[in-house]
Write a protein that binds this DNA or RNA. Structure first.
Lengths: 164, 164
DNA sequence: CAAATACCCGAGTGTATTACTCGGCTATAT
DNA sequence: ATATAGCCGAGTAATACACTCGGGTATTTG
């Protein structure tokens, strides 16, 4: 079992999608700026998320990604599963063949822990997170900063455009 | 956060120690045979466990390791902490500086998850595990197999001894 | 139509960790 | 004295993460 920035990035990006759902499709470039995640890395993660059926894509200008289900119907566990292998804590994947084909001494401990973690992450949907006051506060801060960055970006384009 | 065979080995070995506590110090060679864990790797893990004050060692023939506290006073979380860095699920280690010095969108989710996992693993002591019926059953099986291996080992020594 | 946007895809790269092995050393019981 | 068993550091193959780079392809807009 492992939980690295890979899974964290995926959940963060999906939450960003849920928070800005009303704007239509969200580009990975926007998420990259707001959440400070490498664009190319996001592309890789979203490839997995799309294969898992959690998001659908719109190509071309003005395109991006949107959630393929209501945010209440997408739980954190699914997102991590889609991107990481799993949050299973056993070495045998629940097959009880951990020690020379037989159950190892600590087998039940890891299955219990896996259940615990999975239960917890299954019980939290994107909608649950969107509703949290702290999340909304962070989102507002990011939107302000993101808009500022966006303006700077547009200005740069205007300058370059003027030089042509 | 990650939970690999490293932490699993450590907990398994400590449980083996708890199960055979009445035999006096247990050698890593015994644990290695019973739990099918590389001896040198066990040495590395026990170096950490000793530094963490979870076990104490007896050198020389008949020596080995024993728990430095009652098995009821040693919980699984401590063992994993001693050997792995931690079971913390946040990237910032709870410092809230996950995204460009500020709290990231999903910060509270990972702190909640960390609490969940830590709470679970903190609530389970070695004694709790020793008492479990399934654990005792696996232990009995391992002891039989281990004794058989031990006999084979002794026979081999006897044969080699006979050839000298 | 052209150009820009933005998704898509595969290959490669540095770094870190895991799960070991190997070789040698030191303390201690018999 | 010798065997046992803890100690210790170095090295190593395999794997993964967290990226970058360089190209595509679909779609909108001027």
């Amino acid at each position: 079992m492992r939980l690295t920035t890979k899974g964290r990035y995926a959940v963060t990006a999906m939450l960003d999608l849920a928070l800005h759902a009303e704007r239509g499709p969200i580009s990975l470039a926007d998420i990259s700026k707001r959440q400070d995640i490498s664009l190319s890395y996001l592309e890789q993660l979203f490839s997995r998320l799309r294969q898992a059926g959690l998001v659908c894509s719109v190509r071309g200008p003005g395109g991006g990604y949107r959630l393929s289900r209501a945010s209440a119907e997408i739980c954190v566990a699914e997102i991590i599963d889609a991107v990481n292998e799993s949050v299973d804590a056993t070495s045998c994947g629940g097959n009880s063949d951990c020690s020379a084909g037989e159950q190892c001494l600590t087998h039940y401990l890891w299955t219990d822990l896996s259940e615990q973690i999975h239960g917890f992450l299954n019980g939290i949907s994107l909608e649950d997170m969107v509703k949290r006051a702290e999340v909304q506060e962070v989102a507002r801060r990011q939107d302000r900063r993101g808009d500022a960055l966006g303006d700077a970006g547009e200005q740069k384009v205007a300058i370059i455009g003027g030089l042509q």
